[in-house]
Design a protein around this nucleic acid. Structure first.
Lengths: 201, 201
DNA sequence: CGCGGTATTTGACTTTAGTATGTGAAATAT
DNA sequence: ATATTTCACATACTAAAGTCAAATACCGCG
Protein backbone atom coordinates (compact mmCIF):
# COMPACT_ATOMS: atom_id res chain seq x y z
CA UNK A 1 0.00 0.00 0.00
CA UNK A 2 2.67 2.49 0.95
CA UNK A 3 4.10 2.96 -2.40
CA UNK A 4 7.11 5.31 -2.57
CA UNK A 5 6.17 8.35 -4.56
CA UNK A 6 8.59 11.11 -5.52
CA UNK A 7 7.00 13.24 -2.86
CA UNK A 8 7.51 10.82 -0.04
CA UNK A 9 11.03 10.33 -1.20
CA UNK A 10 11.73 14.01 -0.99
CA UNK A 11 10.19 14.18 2.46
CA UNK A 12 12.39 11.34 3.58
CA UNK A 13 15.39 13.11 2.18
CA UNK A 14 14.50 16.26 4.05
CA UNK A 15 14.16 14.33 7.25
CA UNK A 16 17.41 12.53 6.67
CA UNK A 17 19.23 15.77 5.95
CA UNK A 18 17.84 17.36 9.12
CA UNK A 19 18.82 14.34 11.16
CA UNK A 20 22.34 14.09 9.82
CA UNK A 21 22.99 17.80 9.97
CA UNK A 22 21.61 17.95 13.48
CA UNK A 23 23.79 15.11 14.65
CA UNK A 24 26.82 16.59 13.00
CA UNK A 25 26.29 20.00 14.56
CA UNK A 26 25.50 18.57 17.99
CA UNK A 27 28.64 16.53 17.79
CA UNK A 28 30.74 19.48 16.76
CA UNK A 29 29.33 22.17 19.07
CA UNK A 30 27.30 20.40 21.74
CA UNK A 31 23.51 20.14 21.95
CA UNK A 32 23.04 23.36 23.90
CA UNK A 33 25.11 25.39 21.49
CA UNK A 34 23.15 24.48 18.38
CA UNK A 35 19.84 26.10 17.50
CA UNK A 36 17.05 24.67 15.41
CA UNK A 37 17.39 27.73 13.18
CA UNK A 38 20.98 26.80 12.53
CA UNK A 39 20.04 23.27 11.58
CA UNK A 40 17.29 24.26 9.18
CA UNK A 41 19.39 27.01 7.64
CA UNK A 42 22.18 24.55 6.93
CA UNK A 43 19.66 22.26 5.26
CA UNK A 44 17.93 25.07 3.37
CA UNK A 45 14.53 24.19 4.71
CA UNK A 46 12.13 26.04 6.94
CA UNK A 47 11.59 25.72 10.64
CA UNK A 48 8.09 24.42 10.06
CA UNK A 49 9.51 21.52 8.08
CA UNK A 50 11.69 20.59 11.01
CA UNK A 51 8.68 20.33 13.29
CA UNK A 52 6.80 18.19 10.80
CA UNK A 53 9.51 15.59 10.99
CA UNK A 54 10.45 15.96 14.66
CA UNK A 55 8.47 16.79 17.74
CA UNK A 56 11.28 18.71 19.34
CA UNK A 57 14.94 19.52 19.12
CA UNK A 58 15.48 16.58 21.46
CA UNK A 59 14.00 14.24 18.90
CA UNK A 60 17.13 14.34 16.80
CA UNK A 61 19.04 12.68 19.59
CA UNK A 62 16.11 10.48 20.56
CA UNK A 63 16.08 9.05 17.05
CA UNK A 64 19.80 8.33 17.13
CA UNK A 65 19.42 6.81 20.57
CA UNK A 66 17.19 4.11 19.14
CA UNK A 67 20.23 2.73 17.34
CA UNK A 68 21.00 1.12 20.66
CA UNK A 69 18.33 -1.45 19.98
CA UNK A 70 20.42 -2.85 17.17
CA UNK A 71 23.30 -3.04 19.54
CA UNK A 72 21.15 -5.05 21.93
CA UNK A 73 20.05 -7.49 19.28
CA UNK A 74 23.55 -7.99 17.98
CA UNK A 75 24.82 -8.56 21.47
CA UNK A 76 22.18 -11.15 22.23
CA UNK A 77 23.03 -13.04 19.07
CA UNK A 78 26.74 -13.09 19.78
CA UNK A 79 26.83 -14.04 23.43
CA UNK A 80 28.36 -17.38 24.39
CA UNK A 81 25.98 -19.80 26.00
CA UNK A 82 28.30 -21.52 28.41
CA UNK A 83 28.57 -18.83 31.03
CA UNK A 84 26.29 -18.08 33.95
CA UNK A 85 23.40 -15.68 33.65
CA UNK A 86 24.96 -13.23 36.08
CA UNK A 87 28.11 -13.12 34.00
CA UNK A 88 26.10 -12.51 30.89
CA UNK A 89 24.49 -9.55 32.56
CA UNK A 90 27.84 -8.14 33.62
CA UNK A 91 29.33 -8.55 30.18
CA UNK A 92 26.23 -7.08 28.63
CA UNK A 93 26.39 -3.92 30.73
CA UNK A 94 30.10 -3.58 30.20
CA UNK A 95 29.65 -3.69 26.44
CA UNK A 96 26.70 -1.35 26.63
CA UNK A 97 28.57 1.24 28.66
CA UNK A 98 31.42 1.22 26.19
CA UNK A 99 28.85 1.74 23.47
CA UNK A 100 27.29 4.67 25.30
CA UNK A 101 30.59 6.28 26.08
CA UNK A 102 32.27 5.81 22.71
CA UNK A 103 29.47 5.64 20.16
CA UNK A 104 26.62 7.74 21.48
CA UNK A 105 28.44 10.04 23.87
CA UNK A 106 27.54 11.69 27.12
CA UNK A 107 25.85 14.70 25.58
CA UNK A 108 23.37 12.51 23.72
CA UNK A 109 22.63 10.42 26.78
CA UNK A 110 22.17 13.49 28.92
CA UNK A 111 19.72 14.85 26.41
CA UNK A 112 17.74 11.64 26.20
CA UNK A 113 17.60 11.27 29.97
CA UNK A 114 16.52 14.88 30.41
CA UNK A 115 13.86 14.61 27.78
CA UNK A 116 12.44 11.49 29.39
CA UNK A 117 12.03 13.48 32.60
CA UNK A 118 10.42 16.47 30.98
CA UNK A 119 7.79 14.35 29.27
CA UNK A 120 6.64 12.80 32.52
CA UNK A 121 3.32 14.57 32.15
CA UNK A 122 1.06 12.87 29.60
CA UNK A 123 3.52 11.54 27.02
CA UNK A 124 5.80 8.58 27.55
CA UNK A 125 9.38 8.49 26.47
CA UNK A 126 10.97 5.62 24.63
CA UNK A 127 13.34 5.23 27.57
CA UNK A 128 10.51 4.01 29.76
CA UNK A 129 8.85 1.88 27.09
CA UNK A 130 8.63 -1.69 28.41
CA UNK A 131 8.82 -3.10 24.90
CA UNK A 132 12.37 -1.95 24.28
CA UNK A 133 14.84 -4.59 23.23
CA UNK A 134 16.71 -3.85 26.42
CA UNK A 135 14.01 -5.50 28.47
CA UNK A 136 13.86 -8.52 26.18
CA UNK A 137 17.56 -9.08 26.61
CA UNK A 138 17.66 -8.60 30.36
CA UNK A 139 14.51 -10.62 30.82
CA UNK A 140 15.97 -13.57 29.00
CA UNK A 141 19.10 -13.51 31.17
CA UNK A 142 17.11 -13.15 34.36
CA UNK A 143 14.76 -15.96 33.41
CA UNK A 144 17.74 -18.15 32.78
CA UNK A 145 19.24 -17.23 36.14
CA UNK A 146 16.06 -18.05 37.96
CA UNK A 147 15.57 -21.33 36.10
CA UNK A 148 19.13 -22.42 36.86
CA UNK A 149 18.64 -21.59 40.54
CA UNK A 150 21.40 -19.03 40.31
CA UNK A 151 19.09 -16.30 41.59
CA UNK A 152 17.01 -16.63 44.70
CA UNK A 153 13.24 -16.79 44.74
CA UNK A 154 11.00 -14.10 46.12
CA UNK A 155 11.00 -11.67 43.23
CA UNK A 156 9.45 -12.25 39.84
CA UNK A 157 11.41 -12.10 36.61
CA UNK A 158 9.91 -8.72 35.88
CA UNK A 159 10.80 -7.35 39.28
CA UNK A 160 14.38 -8.50 38.98
CA UNK A 161 14.68 -7.11 35.46
CA UNK A 162 13.38 -3.76 36.58
CA UNK A 163 15.81 -3.68 39.48
CA UNK A 164 18.74 -4.45 37.24
CA UNK A 165 17.86 -1.87 34.64
CA UNK A 166 17.26 0.64 37.39
CA UNK A 167 20.74 0.03 38.63
CA UNK A 168 21.89 0.86 35.14
CA UNK A 169 19.88 4.06 34.98
CA UNK A 170 21.16 5.14 38.39
CA UNK A 171 24.73 4.71 37.25
CA UNK A 172 24.11 6.55 34.03
CA UNK A 173 22.43 9.35 35.93
CA UNK A 174 25.46 9.68 38.18
CA UNK A 175 27.75 9.63 35.17
CA UNK A 176 25.87 12.67 33.93
CA UNK A 177 25.65 14.70 37.11
CA UNK A 178 29.08 13.97 38.54
CA UNK A 179 31.69 15.75 36.50
CA UNK A 180 34.76 14.23 34.98
CA UNK A 181 36.80 11.39 36.52
CA UNK A 182 33.72 9.16 36.51
CA UNK A 183 34.55 5.93 34.73
CA UNK A 184 31.16 4.71 33.59
CA UNK A 185 32.41 1.23 32.70
CA UNK A 186 34.09 0.62 36.02
CA UNK A 187 31.28 2.15 38.06
CA UNK A 188 28.68 0.09 36.27
CA UNK A 189 30.65 -3.04 36.98
CA UNK A 190 30.90 -2.27 40.67
CA UNK A 191 27.25 -1.49 41.07
CA UNK A 192 25.98 -4.37 38.97
CA UNK A 193 28.19 -6.86 40.77
CA UNK A 194 26.81 -5.74 44.11
CA UNK A 195 23.23 -5.94 42.96
CA UNK A 196 23.81 -9.36 41.42
CA UNK A 197 25.39 -10.55 44.66
CA UNK A 198 22.23 -9.47 46.40
CA UNK A 199 20.13 -11.44 43.93
CA UNK A 200 22.07 -14.68 44.19
CA UNK A 201 21.00 -17.37 46.59
CA UNK B 1 30.69 43.00 59.74
CA UNK B 2 27.54 42.41 57.71
CA UNK B 3 25.33 44.68 59.56
CA UNK B 4 21.65 44.44 58.70
CA UNK B 5 20.73 47.69 57.05
CA UNK B 6 17.19 48.72 56.14
CA UNK B 7 17.99 48.04 52.52
CA UNK B 8 19.15 44.52 53.14
CA UNK B 9 16.09 43.88 55.18
CA UNK B 10 13.83 44.97 52.38
CA UNK B 11 15.80 42.85 49.93
CA UNK B 12 15.31 39.83 52.13
CA UNK B 13 11.60 40.50 52.22
CA UNK B 14 11.46 40.70 48.45
CA UNK B 15 13.32 37.44 48.14
CA UNK B 16 11.06 35.79 50.63
CA UNK B 17 7.97 37.00 48.80
CA UNK B 18 9.30 35.69 45.48
CA UNK B 19 10.15 32.36 47.02
CA UNK B 20 6.83 31.88 48.74
CA UNK B 21 4.79 33.07 45.79
CA UNK B 22 6.79 30.88 43.47
CA UNK B 23 6.28 27.81 45.61
CA UNK B 24 2.61 28.52 45.97
CA UNK B 25 2.08 28.93 42.24
CA UNK B 26 4.19 25.89 41.37
CA UNK B 27 2.18 23.89 43.82
CA UNK B 28 -1.12 25.11 42.45
CA UNK B 29 -0.40 24.97 38.72
CA UNK B 30 2.75 22.90 38.27
CA UNK B 31 6.24 24.18 37.51
CA UNK B 32 5.84 24.15 33.74
CA UNK B 33 2.61 26.12 33.87
CA UNK B 34 3.98 29.05 35.82
CA UNK B 35 6.06 31.78 34.23
CA UNK B 36 8.59 33.99 35.93
CA UNK B 37 6.55 36.96 34.74
CA UNK B 38 3.57 35.62 36.61
CA UNK B 39 5.57 35.29 39.81
CA UNK B 40 7.03 38.77 39.66
CA UNK B 41 3.71 40.31 38.72
CA UNK B 42 2.06 38.69 41.73
CA UNK B 43 4.78 40.13 43.94
CA UNK B 44 4.70 43.55 42.28
CA UNK B 45 8.39 43.49 41.51
CA UNK B 46 10.31 43.45 38.28
CA UNK B 47 11.86 40.59 36.45
CA UNK B 48 15.29 42.06 37.05
CA UNK B 49 14.68 41.78 40.78
CA UNK B 50 13.89 38.11 40.41
CA UNK B 51 17.20 37.44 38.74
CA UNK B 52 19.06 39.36 41.41
CA UNK B 53 17.80 36.89 43.99
CA UNK B 54 17.73 33.71 41.92
CA UNK B 55 19.88 32.38 39.14
CA UNK B 56 17.01 30.71 37.35
CA UNK B 57 13.40 29.70 37.64
CA UNK B 58 14.65 26.35 38.88
CA UNK B 59 16.30 28.04 41.82
CA UNK B 60 12.99 28.51 43.59
CA UNK B 61 12.63 24.75 43.85
CA UNK B 62 16.34 24.23 44.45
CA UNK B 63 16.11 26.46 47.49
CA UNK B 64 13.15 24.57 48.88
CA UNK B 65 14.88 21.29 48.16
CA UNK B 66 17.61 22.20 50.62
CA UNK B 67 15.07 21.82 53.41
CA UNK B 68 15.80 18.15 53.09
CA UNK B 69 19.05 18.68 54.93
CA UNK B 70 17.11 19.52 58.08
CA UNK B 71 15.18 16.35 57.60
CA UNK B 72 18.44 14.42 57.44
CA UNK B 73 19.80 15.97 60.63
CA UNK B 74 16.58 15.40 62.52
CA UNK B 75 16.49 11.82 61.40
CA UNK B 76 20.03 11.16 62.46
CA UNK B 77 19.32 12.56 65.92
CA UNK B 78 16.21 10.47 66.40
CA UNK B 79 17.35 7.06 65.22
CA UNK B 80 17.57 4.26 67.78
CA UNK B 81 21.00 2.88 68.33
CA UNK B 82 20.22 -0.75 68.96
CA UNK B 83 19.48 -1.83 65.42
CA UNK B 84 21.85 -2.97 62.72
CA UNK B 85 23.40 -0.54 60.27
CA UNK B 86 21.58 -2.10 57.34
CA UNK B 87 18.27 -1.63 59.09
CA UNK B 88 19.09 1.97 59.80
CA UNK B 89 19.72 2.53 56.13
CA UNK B 90 16.42 0.90 55.21
CA UNK B 91 14.46 2.95 57.71
CA UNK B 92 16.28 6.07 56.65
CA UNK B 93 15.35 5.64 53.01
CA UNK B 94 11.79 4.74 53.84
CA UNK B 95 11.38 7.92 55.85
CA UNK B 96 13.09 9.94 53.19
CA UNK B 97 10.86 8.64 50.42
CA UNK B 98 7.78 9.51 52.41
CA UNK B 99 9.23 12.95 52.88
CA UNK B 100 9.86 13.36 49.16
CA UNK B 101 6.47 12.08 48.18
CA UNK B 102 4.40 13.95 50.75
CA UNK B 103 6.36 17.05 51.62
CA UNK B 104 8.35 18.03 48.57
CA UNK B 105 6.36 16.35 45.82
CA UNK B 106 7.26 14.76 42.53
CA UNK B 107 7.19 17.98 40.53
CA UNK B 108 9.84 19.54 42.73
CA UNK B 109 12.04 16.48 42.63
CA UNK B 110 11.69 16.22 38.89
CA UNK B 111 12.76 19.83 38.55
CA UNK B 112 15.74 19.43 40.84
CA UNK B 113 16.87 16.28 39.07
CA UNK B 114 16.49 17.89 35.68
CA UNK B 115 18.34 20.99 36.69
CA UNK B 116 21.23 18.91 38.06
CA UNK B 117 21.52 17.32 34.62
CA UNK B 118 21.40 20.54 32.68
CA UNK B 119 24.22 22.08 34.70
CA UNK B 120 26.60 19.27 33.93
CA UNK B 121 28.78 21.67 32.00
CA UNK B 122 30.89 23.90 34.28
CA UNK B 123 28.60 24.46 37.27
CA UNK B 124 27.87 21.86 39.89
CA UNK B 125 24.47 21.25 41.38
CA UNK B 126 23.79 20.88 45.05
CA UNK B 127 22.51 17.37 44.32
CA UNK B 128 26.02 16.22 43.47
CA UNK B 129 27.73 18.14 46.25
CA UNK B 130 29.67 15.63 48.38
CA UNK B 131 29.27 17.82 51.47
CA UNK B 132 25.52 17.37 51.68
CA UNK B 133 24.16 16.09 54.96
CA UNK B 134 22.93 13.07 53.06
CA UNK B 135 26.45 11.79 52.66
CA UNK B 136 27.28 12.42 56.31
CA UNK B 137 24.32 10.34 57.39
CA UNK B 138 24.91 7.45 55.00
CA UNK B 139 28.61 7.49 55.67
CA UNK B 140 28.07 7.11 59.38
CA UNK B 141 25.78 4.13 58.87
CA UNK B 142 28.13 2.50 56.41
CA UNK B 143 31.12 3.02 58.65
CA UNK B 144 29.22 1.38 61.46
CA UNK B 145 28.26 -1.55 59.24
CA UNK B 146 31.84 -2.09 58.18
CA UNK B 147 33.17 -1.78 61.73
CA UNK B 148 30.63 -4.31 63.02
CA UNK B 149 31.58 -6.74 60.27
CA UNK B 150 28.03 -6.58 58.92
CA UNK B 151 29.26 -5.51 55.50
CA UNK B 152 31.94 -7.33 53.62
CA UNK B 153 35.37 -5.91 52.87
CA UNK B 154 36.61 -5.00 49.45
CA UNK B 155 34.99 -1.63 49.03
CA UNK B 156 35.82 1.51 50.97
CA UNK B 157 33.27 3.40 53.05
CA UNK B 158 33.08 6.04 50.35
CA UNK B 159 32.52 3.52 47.61
CA UNK B 160 29.74 1.82 49.52
CA UNK B 161 28.10 5.15 50.36
CA UNK B 162 28.18 6.20 46.76
CA UNK B 163 26.65 2.88 45.68
CA UNK B 164 23.84 3.22 48.18
CA UNK B 165 22.99 6.79 47.29
CA UNK B 166 23.16 5.87 43.64
CA UNK B 167 20.60 3.19 44.27
CA UNK B 168 18.44 5.91 45.74
CA UNK B 169 18.89 8.23 42.77
CA UNK B 170 18.12 5.39 40.36
CA UNK B 171 14.86 4.69 42.13
CA UNK B 172 13.93 8.35 42.23
CA UNK B 173 14.72 8.67 38.54
CA UNK B 174 12.43 5.76 37.76
CA UNK B 175 9.73 7.28 39.95
CA UNK B 176 9.89 10.33 37.72
CA UNK B 177 10.00 8.69 34.32
CA UNK B 178 7.58 5.85 34.92
CA UNK B 179 4.08 7.22 35.14
CA UNK B 180 1.61 6.57 37.90
CA UNK B 181 1.32 3.30 39.84
CA UNK B 182 4.92 3.60 40.95
CA UNK B 183 5.08 3.33 44.71
CA UNK B 184 8.32 5.09 45.54
CA UNK B 185 8.40 3.83 49.13
CA UNK B 186 7.92 0.19 48.22
CA UNK B 187 10.26 0.33 45.25
CA UNK B 188 12.98 1.96 47.29
CA UNK B 189 12.67 -0.77 49.90
CA UNK B 190 12.96 -3.53 47.35
CA UNK B 191 15.98 -2.05 45.65
CA UNK B 192 17.79 -1.06 48.82
CA UNK B 193 17.25 -4.49 50.38
CA UNK B 194 18.76 -6.16 47.36
CA UNK B 195 21.77 -3.88 47.32
CA UNK B 196 22.27 -4.32 51.06
CA UNK B 197 22.09 -8.08 50.63
CA UNK B 198 24.86 -7.74 48.11
CA UNK B 199 26.95 -5.76 50.56
CA UNK B 200 26.56 -8.13 53.47
CA UNK B 201 29.14 -10.79 54.10
C1' DC C 1 -5.01 16.79 -19.35
C1' DG C 2 -6.81 19.05 -15.51
C1' DC C 3 -8.83 19.01 -11.13
C1' DG C 4 -9.82 18.14 -6.20
C1' DG C 5 -7.57 16.80 -2.37
C1' DT C 6 -3.62 15.93 0.45
C1' DA C 7 1.12 16.06 2.03
C1' DT C 8 4.85 19.06 2.54
C1' DT C 9 6.79 23.35 3.29
C1' DT C 10 6.97 28.19 4.44
C1' DG C 11 8.08 32.03 7.52
C1' DA C 12 6.04 35.25 10.44
C1' DC C 13 4.42 34.94 14.97
C1' DT C 14 4.03 33.73 20.00
C1' DT C 15 5.94 32.57 24.29
C1' DT C 16 9.10 32.66 27.84
C1' DA C 17 13.64 32.41 30.06
C1' DG C 18 17.22 35.08 30.65
C1' DT C 19 20.34 39.58 29.86
C1' DA C 20 22.15 44.35 29.34
C1' DT C 21 21.75 48.56 30.86
C1' DG C 22 19.94 52.29 33.41
C1' DT C 23 18.34 54.62 37.82
C1' DG C 24 17.75 56.31 42.34
C1' DA C 25 17.92 55.87 47.08
C1' DA C 26 20.54 54.20 50.80
C1' DA C 27 25.05 53.30 52.65
C1' DT C 28 29.66 54.78 53.13
C1' DA C 29 33.69 57.70 52.68
C1' DT C 30 35.73 62.30 52.85
C1' DA D 1 27.40 68.09 55.18
C1' DT D 2 28.54 66.72 50.91
C1' DA D 3 30.57 63.56 47.43
C1' DT D 4 30.96 58.93 45.94
C1' DT D 5 29.83 54.29 45.56
C1' DT D 6 27.03 50.40 45.86
C1' DC D 7 23.15 47.62 45.32
C1' DA D 8 18.26 46.44 44.87
C1' DC D 9 15.28 47.01 41.43
C1' DA D 10 13.09 48.50 36.76
C1' DT D 11 12.76 48.32 31.84
C1' DA D 12 13.52 47.16 27.41
C1' DC D 13 15.66 43.92 25.03
C1' DT D 14 17.60 39.29 22.95
C1' DA D 15 17.50 34.41 22.01
C1' DA D 16 15.54 30.47 20.82
C1' DA D 17 11.95 26.75 20.90
C1' DG D 18 7.84 25.85 19.20
C1' DT D 19 3.08 27.06 16.50
C1' DC D 20 -0.03 27.94 12.83
C1' DA D 21 -2.50 29.65 8.85
C1' DA D 22 -1.39 30.09 4.27
C1' DA D 23 1.07 28.66 0.11
C1' DT D 24 2.93 25.28 -2.81
C1' DA D 25 3.89 20.89 -4.94
C1' DC D 26 2.47 16.61 -5.93
C1' DC D 27 -0.69 12.67 -6.11
C1' DG D 28 -4.36 9.78 -8.00
C1' DC D 29 -8.33 9.74 -10.74
C1' DG D 30 -11.93 10.78 -14.09
Amino acid sequence: MTHITARKLKALETKKALLETGLELFDKKGFDNVTVDEIVKTCNVSKGAFYVHFNSKYDIFNEKFKDIDNFYSEFQKGISNDIKASEKILIFFEAQMIYLRDELGKDLIRTVYMNAMSLTINKNHYLSDPNRNLYQVINSFVQEGIKNKEFKEGLTTEEVSVLITRCMRGTIYDWIIFGEQFDIVEEMNKFTSTVLDGLKR
